[in-house]
């Protein structure tokens, strides 16, 4: 279970209100796309969910409990860049989560437990299509492969929530299509709640079961920072299957 509830959330920086009065109720297993113009607080909202920042006012509840105000293993994340560790091979990147979890002091596994972790990691990497690149360093992978690795790395701890910050922003259209397929498959297998920031509306509508549009309702032309963004549209895409069926022949 991973219900996310947002109550009366405000996020203010000095001289700037970023988010105002955000209220949300996201049931477990939803795939939310956060869309909107640049600078309207989508990424800030993701960072709040991540626990990287604290809201000025209001609360975020995860399954009814207040969210821990720092990043933790219940929330996996994939950024647009720098999500993987350049000094570890593909396989080492993926077992890292298990190593952190099982070896509190050394952060390293040995012997049978390492072999078990490696076996598990191989399975996850096979699932994201990186089975033939286990010994490579991230710098030797293409952009799309690096993002696959980042996803595999995040998935090994089976997070309740997966947060994606424009994960496919730097990829070419062909690679993007493959990544959509992969992401939808993993999402339905793992039954996690996904939040994805994207500035590509089509991407949002293709993937999500629910699209949240962020925008400023009020704008003061003399003081652009006076008012923050709200969720202006909250579209549950219940007819997604049908919509996807309609889209498929077109594109």
């Amino acid at each position: 279970m991973s219900n996310v509830t947002v109550r009366d959330l405000w996020m203010e920086y000095p001289n700037q209100v970023v988010l105002e009065r955000v209220n949300l109720e996201i049931p477990s297993g939803e795939f939310c796309a956060l869309v909107g113009p640049s600078g309207c607080g989508k990424t800030t909202f993701l960072r709040l969910l991540l626990g990287e920042e604290r809201p000025t006012r209001g609360r975020i509840l995860l399954d009814g409990e207040p969210l821990v105000a720092e990043p933790g293993p219940d929330r996996g994340v994939v950024f647009q860049r720098y999500s993987v560790f350049p000094h570890l091979t593909v396989l080492e990147n993926v077992i890292l989560g298990r190593e952190f979890q099982q070896s509190r002091f050394l952060g390293r596994l040995f012997g049978a437990r390492r072999r078990a972790a490696l076996e598990e990691a191989r399975g996850v990497l096979e699932a994201v299509g990186l089975g033939n690149h286990l010994g490579k360093y991230p710098a030797e992978l293409s952009g799309g492969m690096q993002q696959r690795l980042a996803i595999a790395q995040a998935l090994i701890l089976k997070p309740k929530i997966l947060l994606l910050d424009e994960p496919f922003g730097a990829l070419d259209p062909g690679t993007k299509a493959q990544m959509y397929e992969l992401l939808l498959r993993l999402w339905s297998e793992e039954k996690m709640t996904v939040f994805m920031v994207t500035h590509d509306l089509k991407e949002g509508f293709t993937l999500a079961t629910r699209v949240l549009a962020f925008d400023k309702v009020r704008v003061d032309p003399t003081d652009p920072g006076a008012y923050g963004a709200r969720i202006t549209y909250d579209l549950p895409l219940t007819l997604k299957k049908a919509a996807m069926g309609a889209l498929a022949p077109v594109g």
């Binding site: 293993p73 996996g76 994340v77 560790f85 890292l96 989560g97 952190f100 952060g107 995040a154 701890l157």
Partner: peptide
């Protein structure tokens, strides 16, 4: 951040 989401202290 990533390391923290992987549960690292």
């Amino acid at each position: 951040i990533k390391a923290q989401t992987l549960g690292a202290n």
